[in-house]
Amino acid sequence: MVREEIAVATGAPRWKCVESRIDSKRLYYSRFILSPLMKGQADMIGIAMRRALLGEIEGTCITRVKSEKVPHEFSTIVGIEESVHEIVMNLKEIVLRSNLYGTLDASICIRGPRYVTAQDIILPPSVEIVDATQHIANLTERVDLCIKLQIERDRGYSMKTPHNDEDGSYPIDAIFMPVRNANHSVHSYGNGNEKQEILFIEIWTNGSLTPKEALYEASRNLIDLFIPFLHAEEREIHLEDNANGVPLALFTFHDEFAITNIRKNKKKMALKSIFIDQSELPSKTYNCLKKSNIHTLLDLLNNSQEDLLKIEHFCMEDVKRILDILQKHFGFDLPKNGK
């Protein structure tokens, strides 16, 4: 069936969803194909997509809880079957769907006896519950369960160590990974040099977004990552100290002028790689220099004698000693006063 379609498909690669099913509210599965692709392309796209799907997709999670009456997460509340820790673990697993930025607040305010499920979370309008039946707690008596929640959107996972905040809230470890699993496989057809490939991508998500959306999101993330390459090269990123304004021209070696410049630069680089640790300074002077962010000889040469004297606890003798050392070992001198 697939093959027939492929036979038709020529020219620019196209994608299609060949299989899609919803196993449960929190398990979506789809299979996509992308074809036709040239030899080797399918693998390239496939692995990039897989890694982007697994690592780059954002999700929404509850990241913080706060409850007035509960002293700590190892305590119990009378009338609730679960311990506080179990409730927190249940909250951690709740799947949310949103496209918010920053953090939002939500809350649960329920009076028992009843089962508390994800449905009972009072959410801000931009956030939805995916599976309303997800269990949170079981109130067996007429007790109030009031929890304030904080919702965040992020990617990867976060494990924060709690601190004693004034408001008595504590963080939950959050897993913002909506894609449960992703897989790709490559099918090649054709003969000789005309080999062409089909890429199959399988995606399982947790329901907070459909596999199709995940695919879209992953591609967009990948594109975002590649966009910088489409712009012009930024030339002066690394050479912060190019006084003459000559770039480190890598592709113009035949140019004589460039070569001398490279030599100069090389010397500067050399100075940059000599640390003041190597110049046998007395430890007090050394510490003072280090404190004022002078680590290499280059840093030192950029300062005048006057500048050095401005450093805290620095006296004339120290400057003299530095001058001596510079003279003796490197043949340099420091300018008397600033530029």
């Binding site: 897989r50 890694r51 697994l54 690592g55 699993n181 992703a182 897989n183 790709h184 496989s185 399988e202």
Partner: peptide
């Protein structure tokens, strides 16, 4: 290792 860096099976499971 992050899960996408682990070796994965033929069905994609890391």
């Amino acid at each position: 290792l992050p899960r996408q860096d682990m070796p994965y099976l033929q069905d994609g499971t890391p």
